[in-house]
C-alpha cells in the first residue's frame, strides 16, 4: 500500500467513525441534558405518574400508553391488508398487475407524512366524526387508520421480499406434486418467509411509534390514559413536538429528553431484535 492508499483508507474509516459517532451522540446528548434529574426515584415517578405539571407531576405514562396504543392498532389494521397485497404481488401475480401494485406501493413511500396528516384532518376526521357521532373525530382510531396506511409500504415490501426469496425450485416441486396455491403458501412459503416478515413487522412498528405528524395532527393530543378507540390521546412524539419549553431549567424541558430517550431505546431494541433474527441461520 502506498501513502495515498493509506490516506484514503483512514479518510474513509474516519468518516464511518464520525457517522457512527452521530448515533451515539444523539443518545449521549439527551442523557447529558437531563442528567441532573436522572435518579432512580425520579425515573420511577416519570414512568408511572400522570402528567400535570401544575401539581408537580411529570409522568409520561399516558403518552407512552398513547404511543403503544396507536402504533399497535395501526399495525393491527395494516397487517391483514399488507399481507393480502403482498400475496397479490408475489403469489397471485395476475398478468402484470402485481408489478403495477408494487410500483404503487413504492410510490407510497414518497408521499410526505404531513400530507397524510393534512388529508387526515380535512377528510378522515370529519368522516369519523359523522359516522360515530362522538367527540371531535380527532381520536386514536383516526390516527391509527392513517398511520396504518403510512406503514403499509414497509410491511408490503418486506413481506413480498421475503416471499420472493423462497427458492423457485421448492415452488416448482409443489406444483409438480399437484399442490394448490394455498398448500404452497401454507406449507412452503410461510415457513420460509416468517423471519423476514417478522423483521418487517418490527420495523413497521418502529415507524409507527416514531411518526410525529399524523399523531400530532389527528389524534387530538389530550393527555389522558386512552380508554376507548374514540378517545383522544397523545403520543410521545407529539408530546415532544408540543411541549416546546423555552426555559432551559424547567422540568418540562428535562422531560422532553426523557421522552426522547424512551423513544430511542424502544426503536433501538426493535433494530437489535431484527438483527438477532437475522443472525440465527438464513431466513
Amino acid at each position: 500500500m502506498d501513502f495515498q492508499d493509506r490516506f484514503f483508507r483512514s479518510l474513509f474509516l474516519g468518516a464511518s467513525a464520525l457517522s457512527a459517532l452521530v448515533t451515539v451522540a444523539v443518545l449521549c446528548f439527551m442523557v447529558l441534558l437531563c442528567l441532573p434529574v436522572l435518579k432512580l426515584d425520579f425515573i420511577r415517578h416519570v414512568l408511572t405518574a400522570p402528567w400535570s405539571p401544575g401539581q408537580g407531576q411529570f409522568g409520561i405514562l399516558p403518552m407512552m400508553a398513547g404511543t403503544i396504543c396507536i402504533a399497535f392498532l395501526s399495525l393491527v389494521i395494516s397487517f391483514p391488508i399488507s399481507l393480502g397485497c403482498s400475496f397479490f404481488i408475489e403469489i397471485l401475480k395476475p398478468k402484470g398487475k402485481g408489478n403495477l401494485l408494487k410500483k404503487l406501493v413504492q410510490f407510497m413511500t414518497a408521499i410526505p407524512t404531513v400530507i397524510y396528516g393534512f388529508v387526515g384532518v380535512f377528510l378522515l376526521v370529519p368522516f369519523i366524526r359523522e359516522i360515530f357521532a362522538y367527540g371531535s373525530g380527532m381520536c386514536i382510531l383516526s390516527a391509527s387508520l392513517m398511520l396504518g396506511l403510512l406503514i403499509s409500504p414497509t410491511l408490503i415490501l418486506f413481506f413480498s421480499q421475503s416471499f420472493s426469496r423462497v427458492p423457485q425450485s421448492y415452488l416448482n416441486a409443489v406444483d409438480a406434486l399437484g399442490g394448490t396455491t394455498w398448500q404452497k403458501l401454507y406449507h412452503v412459503i410461510l415457513p420460509h418467509a416468517w423471519k423476514g416478515m417478522l423483521t418487517g413487522i418490527v420495523l413497521a412498528f418502529g415507524r409507527a411509534m416514531g411518526d410525529t405528524l399524523i399523531a400530532l395532527m389527528i389524534s387530538g393530543n389530550a393527555v389522558v390514559m386512552p380508554s376507548s378507540l374514540l378517545d383522544s390521546a397523545r403520543t410521545l412524539t407529539a408530546h415532544i413536538a408540543l411541549i416546546f419549553a423555552a426555559d432551559f431549567d424547567s422540568m418540562e424541558f428535562k422531560i422532553l429528553f426523557i421522552s426522547g430517550i424512551v423513544l430511542y431505546m424502544m426503536t433501538s431494541l426493535g433494530i437489535l431484535f431484527t438483527r438477532g433474527l437475522d443472525r440465527k441461520g438464513p431466513a
Binding site: 444523539v26 418502529g206 433494530i271 438483527r275
Partner: peptide, 24 residues
C-alpha cells in the same frame, strides 16, 4: 448495526438532538 439504529431513530428525536445542540 449503528447505522441501522440511526435510521430507526424517530425524526422528532433527531430534531430534539439538533435542538439540544443549539441549547448547548
Amino acid at each position: 448495526l449503528t447505522f441501522d439504529i440511526l435510521s430507526g431513530i424517530p425524526s422528532i428525536v433527531v430534531g430534539l438532538f439538533g435542538f439540544s445542540i443549539t441549547v448547548f
